[in-house]
Design a protein around this nucleic acid. Structure first.
Lengths: 341, 341
DNA sequence: TTGTAGGCGTTATCAG
DNA sequence: CTGATAACGCCTACAA
C-alpha cells in the first residue's frame, strides 16, 4: 500500500482554485489576496501538505542530498564526522546518504555507482584502505560532480580537502614516548599508500630522527585492511617481537589498530605499560575506562565533518565554476594516560 | 555550479531516435532491434547514464527511501542496527535517511517533519527518552505512512514491531548476580515510561521475587535523559548510596547508563567488582578491555535492524492493506566477565 | 520496430 | 488578483 500524500492539485480542487494560485499562496506571494492565502494555508496545514521533493528536484535539477563514503560507521572517528556532516546538512536542508566501504575497493565502487544512481548533488569521500587509484572518482568528478575529500585524501583530484594534522599528531605522540624514556618504538600502520599512513609515518620518523633514534625496518608494519582483520595485526606483532631487540613501545595509527593491538597484547599476556607502552590514534570515548587507560591522539572528527560539508555545499551552490581549492588542516589533540608511562 | 547528468533525451537526440525508443532499449524491451539496443547501451555506458530518480519517483509515486529515527548514532546498539538496516535496504534499492533525536522530543518532532518533507516511503522508529505520547506518529501513520517500531516501541500504533527479549535479558543478568551471591541489587534505568524500561524492570523484579529478595524503593532509579547527562547518573548513585544498607551490585539498563555508571563509580573511588558488582545492557565491543571487563547483556542489534527493515519494505511493497501485525522478540545474549564476580 | 502524447507535482511565464 | 500552459525526465498506452 502506497502512502499518498496530498498535492497542490488536491488543495486546488477542494478550494475551487487553480494550482498556480495555490502554489503562489503557499509561497506567500504578494499577488495573492489575504483571504485566499489564509484558506489555502489552513487547508494545507490541516492535511499536512508537503511539497513533493521529487517534483521539486525535477524542476530545479537537484536533489538536495549529498552522498558520503566512509570505511566504517562503527568507528568513532567516522560516526563523529557524520554527526558533524548531518548538523550542517540538516540546517541547510540537505539529506545525507551514508555508505560504508568496509575498507573494500569493490564496495567503494558499488557505493559510488549507487550514489550516482540517486543523483546526489555532491559527494564527501574518505578513501578505503584498498583504494590506491581513483579513476572512478576522477571520472565522476570530471563530469562535474562536486567532491570534497576528508581524512583519507588523494592528490589526484583538485578539490577541497579537510584533514587532521596527522604529521604533528604522530610527532607529538612519538615525542611523548621518547620523553617518557622509550627509544625502541614500533609503529603499526594502515596500508602504505593511504595519505594518513604516509603523513603519520613521517611525523613518527621525524620525531625519532630529531632525537637521534634509529629503529630496525621490522619496527614498521602495515595492515592492508586497516586493522579490520585481527590476523593482520597479529602478524605485525609477530614481526615486532621477532626482532633481536624487542620494542619498548608501540604507536598505532588508527582506531581499529589501536583497539586490536591492545586486545592482542592482552591475549599474549604482554602487560601494558609494564612490558610495552602504547599510544595510538583513536576517537573512541571509552578509553579512559580501559585497562590500562590509553594514551591517544584524537582528531577533531565532528569539526572535520562540518567543514567538509560546508565546503561541499559551497561548491554545490556556487554560481560559477570554482577553481581555487583549499586544504584545511586541523589540529589533533593528545590525551596522556597510563598506557604510555 | 550544478552537476548536469545526461538524460534519455540527450541520448535520443545524439542517436537520432525518439525518447521512447531509448527508454525501451535501456530497459531491454523485446520490441527494440538488437542494433538499436546496442547503440543506445553503448552511448549510455559511455556517458554514464543513470535514470533520474526524481523523475522516476514522480512517475511511480515513491522515493525508494526510508527514514530512520534513533536517539544516538554514536551508541553501538544503534550503529549496529543501522548497519543491519542498510544491508537490507541497499540490496532492495532503497536509501536510508538517518536522523537522531539525542533523546529530545522536540528533535523527534523536527526529524519527523523533515523526513515527511522528503516524502519517504516508510519509517523506522525507536522512540526518544522524552517521548511518552505519540500523536505526531499517530497522525502520519493514519495518513498511510508505513511505520515499523524497533527497540523502543509504543502500543498506541498497530504495526509491526521488533524488540529484544528485554524481560529475559534482564532476568538472566539479575539471576546471574544473585547466583554470584549478591542480594542487595540496585537498578539504574532509563525513563520510566519507555517500553524497554518497563520490560527490563519487570525482568529484574521477577528475578528478585523468584529468589525471595526484597529491595528498598531507592534501589530503583530512573534517568530521564537515558544517561546522556552525567549528572542524572550521579544523582541516581547518590540515591543508591544514601540507603542505610548499601547495594552490593548494580544492574544498568542501557549502553550510556552502563558506561556512565562505571565512569562515575571510578571517580568516586568505588572499586568494581570488589566494592560493588556491575552488569548492564550494552552492545559496545570494547568492554572486554575495560577495567574491569564488564559483564553485559547484548541485543541482536544488526538482526533487529534487518528484520525491522524487511518488515517495513514488505509493508511498503504490499499490494493490499496489511491488517495483521507481528511483534518479533529476539533473544538477548549475556557475556559474563569480571565486573560481576 | 519505432514514434507520439500524456501525466506524475511543481513553478515560472504569460495572459487575462 | 487569478488562471492556463509548458517544462523538468521518465515511462507507457496507443498509434503508425
Amino acid at each position: 500500500m502506497r502512502f499518498a500524500a496530498i498535492t497542490i492539485k488536491d488543495i486546488a480542487k477542494a478550494l475551487g482554485l487553480s494550482t498556480s494560485t495555490v502554489s503562489r499562496a503557499l509561497r506567500d506571494s504578494y499577488e495573492i489576496s489575504p483571504e485566499t492565502k489564509e484558506k489555502v494555508l489552513a487547508y494545507a496545514e490541516k492535511f499536512n501538505y508537503r511539497p513533493n521533493p521529487a517534483a521539486l528536484g525535477l524542476k530545479e535539477r537537484r536533489t538536495r542530498s549529498i552522498g558520503v563514503i566512509v570505511s566504517e560507521i562503527d568507528n568513532t572517528f567516522f560516526s563523529e564526522a557524520i554527526n558533524g556532516m548531518e548538523s550542517i546538512a540538516f540546517d541547510r536542508g540537505y539529506t545525507v546518504i551514508i555508505t560504508q566501504t568496509h575498507e573494500s575497493f569493490q564496495r567503494e565502487l558499488a557505493n559510488l555507482r549507487y550514489l550516482s544512481s540517486r543523483s546526489i548533488d555532491g559527494l564527501l569521500v574518505s578513501l578505503s584502505s584498498e583504494t590506491n587509484d581513483i579513476p572512478h572518482l576522477n571520472k565522476i568528478h570530471q563530469q562535474g560532480l562536486p567532491l570534497v575529500f576528508f581524512d583519507r585524501i588523494s592528490d589526484e583530484i583538485k578539490t577541497h580537502k579537510v584533514i587532521a594534522d596527522n604529521f604533528k599528531g604522530a610527532y607529538d605522540v612519538t615525542k611523548h614516548l621518547i620523553d617518557s624514556g622509550h627509544k625502541r618504538i614500533a609503529h603499526l600502520a594502515n596500508v602504505s599508500y593511504l595519505s594518513i599512513t604516509i603523513e603519520r609515518l613521517k611525523g613518527f620518523e621525524k620525531a625519532l630522527s630529531d632525537h637521534g633514534i634509529k629503529i630496525p625496518a621490522s619496527y614498521i608494519q602495515y595492515c592492508s585492511h586497516g586493522g579490520l582483520m585481527e590476523e593482520e595485526i597479529d602478524k605485525a606483532l609477530d614481526a615486532f617481537f621477532a626482532s633481536k631487540i624487542k620494542p619498548e613501545a608501540i604507536f598505532t595509527a588508527g582506531e581499529k589498530l589501536t583497539i586490536g593491538c591492545l586486545r592482542l597484547l592482552k591475549k599474549r599476556g604482554i602487560k601494558v605499560p609494564e612490558d610495552i607502552a602504547m599510544v595510538g590514534f583513536s576517537n573512541a570515548k571509552l578509553l579512559d575506562l580501559f585497562d590500562p587507560p590509553l594514551t591517544i591522539v584524537k582528531q577533531p572528527a565532528f569539526e572535520m565533518g562540518q567543514i567538509a560539508t560546508e565546503m561541499l555545499l559551497n561548491l554545490i551552490e556556487s554560481r560559477r565554476p570554482v577553481t581555487e581549492f583549499e586544504k584545511r588542516v586541523l589540529p589533533t589533540q593528545m590525551t596522556i594516560r597510563d598506557s604510555s608511562l
